[in-house]
Nucleic acid binder design. Sequence first.
RNA 1: GCUCCCAUCGUCUAGCGGUCCAGGAUGCUGCCCUCUCAAGGCAGAGACACGGGUUCGAUUCCCGUUGGGAGCGCCA
Length: 561
Amino acid sequence: MGETIVTRFAPSPTGHLHIGGARTALFNWALAQGRGRFLLRIEDTDRARSSEHAARGILEDLAWLGIDWDEGPEFEGRGGDPRSVGPFRQALRLPHYDVCVERLIAEDLAYPAFETGEELELLRAAARKEKRGFRYRRAAGWDREAALARMAAEEHVVRFRMPQAPVGVVDAVLGNVEFGEEHLDDFVIRKRDGFPTYHLAVVADDAAMGVTHVLRGQEHLNNTPRHVALQRALGFPQPVYVHLPVIANPDGSKLSKRDKDKAARAAVKAAIAEAGEGARERFAACVGAEALEGWLGDKRSQLEPALLAELAALLELELPCIEVEDFRRAGYLPEVVCNYLALLGWSPGEKDAEDRDLERFDRDFLAERFSAERVGRSAASFDLEKLGAFDQESIAGLSDADFYERWSEWLTRYAPQALEREESWRRRFAAMIRTRSRTLADPTASAGPGAFAWLPDDGYAFDPKAVAKFLHKGEPAGHVLLTAASEVLAAVEPFEPDAIEAAVRELAEARSVGMGKIAQPLRVAATGGSASPPLGETLAILGRAAVDRRIRRCLGECAPA
RNA sequence: GCUCCCAUCGUCUAGCGGUCCAGGAUGCUGCCCUCUCAAGGCAGAGACACGGGUUCGAUUCCCGUUGGGAGCGCCA
């Protein structure tokens, strides 16, 4: 292997890892596997919004996905600084950026500026009014000596002098992109608080850390001329740029954390419209009256994640999966999330043994085959159905023991009360519900395939349509056969799937009816609905006593009119 | 508004000038299997945005139109 590739993922710690960020991390990781190193850097130059908590959450999200970093913050055996290019938090690298800034100022490639944010806002508004773009440019009669003198005494930002020439960006997937100089302005590289802006920080750090390939979302393309200009001014080598297509919502808009608020807001408004002011008060009690009004009125405002979750629970609304943590909570397997994500904007372009497009593969395969040449150009929208299909297929492919392990881990984290059931029961239940589960959350989901097994014997409703079809109609009617079945079941020994099914079959033959004539009424009685795992398994997992109670309740509540 | 990017089935995509009346996956529909569901098997509907070029020949190359997206911060 010739040149060593160095890639990096550089999230800003302002919340959980976004699913688009996860894909970026995955591709950066993949490119470096076996070819070089992958490093993680925390871009926490926004002092107001960054948090230690969020940074840790992101490390955890990456670790869950199976994305390990060679260099970066240390976390459960990952990370470290073998080449001494750290630290990997930008807030700890301020002197490093200052060196760059001073150098640029000394060469008159950067300069202090003293306008306040409000002044700039006015200028921008004026430009907008005249329908032209606002560009900050150093005034013609600018006095360098005076500015430098002022700089020592006054608060200021430092701006980079954008060269008065077009800047060309070379991108591995988009080709050459030209940006005219008339649109590039003198951007800020060091803020009033002394922290570098994103532009300076990435460029300085990528150079210091020897980053050779920058894979990032296409939304960064417009920033790239700035970075290129900075690299040239500082004499830094230029990395290979690979701009990844954005991941969009089904409606075509960019997938955003705000989508959760959007979904909840729509649901709240609908609820208020339908149920009136009473509903509004209920929501106000949850988030606070003032906060609620503000949030409802401003499309861009966001609620605290915890409050949003509470609100969703109140609405019985499932918030869209946007962050890695959402997918984890929803019970998707991390390897499947990686697999699906890898297909968004990239494809291996190979066929499988059946001559179909190869779509299912693991991280090792991705690491081996990934290359910028096969990255697509157009935005990809996230299809939860397809992810679900992949997840179901993977779950079906797990052994009973492996599934039980994975499911137990999920339960421990997200539904610990389920652990109160005996382990032997849970193992048995897991085995019968596995192939009917799309996610690890399905076995305990209230509308899931195994819901009947978790509810108390008097805690579920009998579906009226199923009751009408399987208990009331027919000759003999279902409830008559159910009564007979109830007696047969009382004598079944042992109360296990095979014996139960044999007994039911025998009864069906004795009455000269099909197996379904008896199985369905039993199923309705035992589960409330007309669909469940095979009858024997369904009844056996409940146990003889529970089945008896359930049948009695059903006979009592669902007698024909 | 300005700049930049993009454009194949609903969605993800294969296709890098003829092998394409366009292939796969997912979703959808029907049938089979079957005590129901799930799984499985089989079958089916479903796309090259439009208009100009270039070429013997365009889904593939060029230009334009239209449509979509992103960016325009002392956020990253």
